[in-house]
Amino acid sequence: MDVSKPTLAVWKLASCDGCQLTLLDCEDELLAVAGRVRIAHFLEASREVLPGPYDISLVEGSVTTAADAARIRAIREQSRTLITLGACATAGGIQALRNHADVAEYTSLVYAHPEYIATLATSTPIAAHVDVDYELHGCPIDRGQLLGVISALLAGRKPDLPAHSVCFECKRRHRVCVVVAHGLPCLGPVTRAGCGAICPAQQRGCYGCFGPMETPNLAAEAELLGATGMAPDDIDRLYRLFNTTAFADLLDAAGEKS
């Protein structure tokens, strides 16, 4: 066992497992990565659990229980660098749709035995509970970005993560604009780059799974979506998906300004 290698831990809160699976989906690089770090905690892949502290912690999932709120604080204390993975960890995920519901009523209607269940009324991102060093966005995260961040940290440099929009990425890949050419609704102008503009490549508008870019112009986007024939209700549904809290905060802020 090589004690000089940095330790890597992977943690999961409320999520689908897809972001940590992205690491196992690096079929060509997995064994090389495993050769550069000591995997100290990665339950999806290994029974072996080493005690902390950990040099790099990757955290998937959102905080939806009191136990997980305590757990993420303990993880933070044990981690030199903490990176959140994906829409659940960075924005509360699709399960944050509960945040907009009347949870008391909701719970009493939905459960046969609500007393068996411990859950919070909200699903919140990791950064609402502890300091986060880097955030990887997306539902799920992009494999290339994950490898890029791990490589950067192992090399001792700062990861390079884009804050610009999917449109830049789409143009750089010489894709035909689905809004201009086909009149399709697309969240590309307000969504953070990182996926490789994969939806326009399938002749589909972006649905915002990487969350808002750094400086989104939501008013202009609303006009654009309206011009493709989308009703206000449907525009609202489009924003309230995998990054509902991130987009909703912006919409609320925009609403207060107007």
Partner: peptide, 13 residues
């Protein structure tokens, strides 16, 4: 943790 998919699917298209 519960994620309530069946609950929030209600009202979607």
């Amino acid at each position: 943790p519960p994620r309530f998919f069946e609950a929030f699917l209600r009202g979607r298209r």
